[in-house]
Design a protein around this nucleic acid. Structure first.
Lengths: 385, 385
DNA sequence: GAAATTTGTATTGGACCTTTACGAAGTCGT
DNA sequence: ACGACTTCGTAAAGGTCCAATACAAATTTC
């Protein structure tokens, strides 16, 4: 009811006085007072000081009690499993990055359980105090069957019910979300996407993916497949001239990901090229073959983003992932320049992620905090009757 | 307040009794009664009969009074200007299709004014009784400046303030929306998109465009440019092998629109080919060159839809426009087959528009009815104080 | 034709929120 | 330093709106 609106405004405005809340919510001062009394009694809100400096009686300031809820954020990444424990205002209290061990469900769950135990213990809370866990994984989570599709790096997780075993990690409810979608939410909440209504987070690394924020909300598509741009038909030959049977598979990912950059460098004459980072470093040092390989990458990325811009018309594109973050300085300018010839309107703004490898984890925190806020309110409403 | 919810449910459920409304809205019977009394007094709702057949007292049924509001829908198309006058329940009372005359703003406005006068007279109402006009135009309407961008077929309309002159057509408020976006709304309301949360309406004709419905709502992008898929980079050569300066402009529209089909047929040896319809007819008759040209078109469309599916993951793609409607039978099966090799998940369902050339106009009606519903309520609230 | 069932409305009661008013607690000016 | 002024917090009262209850009206079923 009314406490929800007040609680939401306290979240939004930070330490805030009763008159300010009355103004922000449109409610009267007495109503604010009773709502604050209820929220305070439930332990969700606390007094935090006095507003001084202005004429008149000093107002008491209220803020969300950070310990009113805990969010466990989990990023199951390529090389690392990352966990963070955040309180209800989104402050990360403890975190850990652990090298990925076995990806087999049973062993991965054991690793997660151990790390979650360590984090909660460090924070001085129990595992049962976690309001909500949010897990970022590759692939698409089918909520009906509990299977994880399109995640070849996680063998065994595509079996029905596999994801449901996360319930063993903590007794609290949990959400499973695509890692790149979470990164988009992270950028929208803590990164460059703050205040931007429509934007896309494009991750280029060993793979390629995109998270889409529309009207400030994550857009998943009808089956969770929105943003699967690894399958964009880029680099295709002309179907009129080529023999249909011989048409190259124009997968965006195969040409524009880290492997694609290395392959381009090799094709251009640098046979020993082994990593995208190496190519970018050589290009910065002035190596002509590397510069040419980067040019090729620029062209591919520009075409991919042209397709994205044509369909979505985002205001902003945030570039993330290993290649996006490490090579962004070499890519953004030329890509934007190239885009001007490929799109109808002005191309979208393009920026490199400021959150880097933490984007997924921070997105999990953001999703968790939003959901946990509702959960703790529901819980107190249920308790108060 | 509460009357809004009741009014909305009457819209949704059609002739409906008080107990049913109480159930649907969660309000109590007495509350429904007073709301109905107010709505009836304002002329927005009327009694329509009795529910018979079931045991117990017969319930009075209520429905929206169709004459409580009027929507003028306008489609400014390539060859025709189409207008329809619909009442508040969306029934088209009168309509007219008039060949497009001059596209110069002054003369087009005069044509529209004359046609609008004729329609309202036929319906026995005055121009002032129109609650709302909705205009579908090509291009992108910039609400700030009142200019119409990317509409080369409407010379003079790209000047600031040009669109504002629509206010002369009728004293009522008006909305200007992209024609293809309206067609998407039309399909969502009266066509194949009913009940589908996320779908795309792809129009292929002399030009190419797409309207996107997300969560049942039209998505326009940050500057109204979402769905401008004419600029999809399809048919591009390989940037590694080709000289960058010589790269063909891979505009989707140039290869996949009606002109593109004709050009493909000519390149394949049918020098006298003049129209897409002719090519489709010949293909249906078994002409090998025409069939090959259709194959080329299938391939292009499949690549375009692959890009759309990769970004949006729609549940359904509705094919419209001249080529889409007339050639749909030849395209859909092969396109869907081709798509299976181009996308990550199952390709979206693909269907040919059932509304055909009326999609834009029906979309304007749908948008208008939704907006007019709010307007008439606002007006009565303002009148009742 | 009586019982059963459902509809519509009158009355009551209560929840909730605003308005008004005033005491409390500060700041500013002389 | 002290009074005037401003702002804050709360108490009391009043009003609005809606749900619950009860009952009369209308229709079907047996």
């Amino acid at each position: 009811m009314n406490e929800r609106a007040v609680f939401g405004e306290i979240f939004r405005l930070g330490p805030v006085s009763r008159p300010e809340l009355a103004q922000a919510t449109g409610l009267s001062k007495p109503t604010i007072s009773v709502a604050l009394a209820n929220l305070g009694r439930a332990g969700l809100v606390r007094e935090v000081g006095l507003r001084a400096g202005v004429a008149g009686r000093s107002a008491l300031l209220y803020e969300v009690r950070p310990e009113a809820g805990w969010v466990l954020a989990v990023d199951i990444g390529q090389a690392f499993v990352r966990l963070a424990l955040a309180n209800l205002v989104g402050t990360v209290v403890t975190r850990v990055d652990d090298p990925s061990g076995s990806r087999n469900p049973t062993e991965l769950l054991a690793q997660l359980t151990g790390l979650a135990d360590r984090l909660t213990a460090q924070a001085g809370i129990g595992r049962a105090d976690v309001t909500l866990a949010v897990l970022g994984t590759p692939g698409i989570h089918d909520k009906k069957t509990g299977a994880l599709h399109l995640a070849p790096n996680l063998p065994g997780w595509d079996r029905p019910g596999a994801v449901d075993r996360f319930s063993a990690v903590s007794a609290s409810p949990y959400l499973v979300e695509n890692d790149i979608d979470l990164a988009a939410v992270g950028e929208a909440t803590y990164g460059l996407g703050r205040g931007v209504a429509h934007f896309a987070y494009v991750s280029i690394g060993t793979g390629i993916g995109m998270g889409i924020m529309i009207d400030g909300k994550l857009y998943r598509g009808s089956r969770g497949g929105a943003g699967e741009i690894s399958y964009l038909p880029i680099g295709e030959g002309d179907p009129v001239l080529d023999d249909p049977a011989a048409i190259r598979r124009g997968m965006f990912e195969s040409v524009a990901s880290a492997d694609g950059i290395v392959a381009a460098a090799q094709r251009l004459g640098w046979a020993q090229a082994t990593s995208a980072k190496e190519v970018f470093d050589a290009a910065r040092a002035g190596d002509p073959i590397a510069r040419r390989a980067v040019e090729v990458e620029v062209n591919h990325v520009a075409h991919g983003l042209a397709a994205v811009a044509a369909v979505l018309d985002p205001e902003l594109v945030v570039l993330g992932g290993g290649v996006g973050v490490q090579g962004g300085d070499l890519l953004i300018g030329p890509v934007q320049h190239r885009l001007r010839h490929l799109v109808a309107l002005q191309p979208p703004r393009i920026e490199v992620s400021t959150l880097g490898a933490d984007a997924v984890l921070m997105g999990a925190v953001a999703v968790g905090v939003t959901a946990a806020r509702d959960l703790v309110l529901d819980r107190t409403v249920a308790a108060n009757g």
